[in-house]
């Protein structure tokens, strides 16, 4: 089984983002960037499949700026075999990225494509579903367990109100949720080794995909500020405030 994992370079999840004063976007100057945490989980799962002998090769792909090379190197250091960068300076949208991934998945003959369920920058939660649609194959989103069978997968998904288990034939697209696994840290020797692993570039033009964004971002603004209220000194005072001031508790 050949695995393709899509990874995105995003603002590190510990960074408190700032909106640019002119409303044109998020200030990315001197901000720490990392691999999207959900993609890291997807990659970890792929590497474990290879370690268990269920997969022959793990290829990582990223669509993004030149600096996404660093993200791909990090993926190679975790244990991916090979990396592909599809460079673009455009603001990437899920539909365009899904189109690129479809071409790469087909060229690579990937049996299983793993992605994070969403990127923590634009929070779209679309790319995997779109890729599955374009490939006309099955999808299992928000996976919390993946069992590999003969030419098929059994995937447990986290849905509102429980866990749903699906069976999918290969090829298939799986997007992963937080609790699938805990990604490893790359060891120093593996970081050194990653430097000599193959990282190739394929331009969007070669693939014949137009990555120009379809949606226009009119403005990015701060969310309405929530001002703190006041402190109360006792349970009695709290209950009185909830009943009389806020009107959210009835009688009693």
């Amino acid at each position: 089984m050949k695995l393709l994992v899509a990874v995105k370079r995003v603002v590190d999840y510990n960074v408190k983002v700032r909106v640019k004063p002119d409303g044109s976007g998020i200030d990315l100057q001197n901000v720490k960037m990392s691999m999207n945490p959900f993609d890291e989980i997807a990659l970890e799962e792929a590497i474990r499949m290879k370690e268990r002998g269920q997969a022959t090769e793990v290829v990582v792909v990223s669509v993004g700026p030149k600096q996404a090379q660093e993200t791909l190197r990090a993926a190679l250091a975790m244990g991916a075999d090979r990396a592909i960068l599809v460079p673009t300076e455009e603001r990437t949208e899920p539909l365009g990225v899904a189109k690129v991934l479809k071409v790469i998945a087909e060229r690579e003959g990937a049996d299983l494509i793993l992605l994070g369920k969403q990127a923590i920058d634009d929070d779209s939660n679309q790319t995997g579903q779109m890729l599955a649609a374009l490939m006309l194959c099955g999808q299992a989103c928000f996976a919390s367990a993946i069992n590999v069978g003969d030419g098929k997968l059994e995937v447990t998904r986290e849905i509102d109100g429980g866990l749903e288990t699906l069976e999918l034939p290969l090829p298939a697209v799986v997007t992963v949720d937080l609790r699938l696994n805990e990604p490893r840290y790359a060891s120093l020797p593996n970081i050194m080794k990653a430097k000599s692993k193959p990282l190739s570039e394929i331009s969007p033009d070669d693939i014949g995909v137009d990555l120009h964004p379809r949606l226009a971002v009119v403005r990015v603004s701060e969310p309405p500020a929530r001002t703190g209220g006041r402190m109360v000194s006792s349970v009695d005072e709290l209950l009185a405030a909830l009943r009389d001031e806020a009107g959210v508790l009835k009688g009693a």
Partner: peptide
């Protein structure tokens, strides 16, 4: 924008070649 809608609608969007707006 629940686990139901998030699962289904992007798939429709790609079939229609439309960029979806989430959430």
């Amino acid at each position: 924008a629940t686990s139901f809608g998030k699962n289904v609608l992007p798939r429709v969007a790609a079939l229609l070649d439309v960029m979806q707006i989430s959430d």
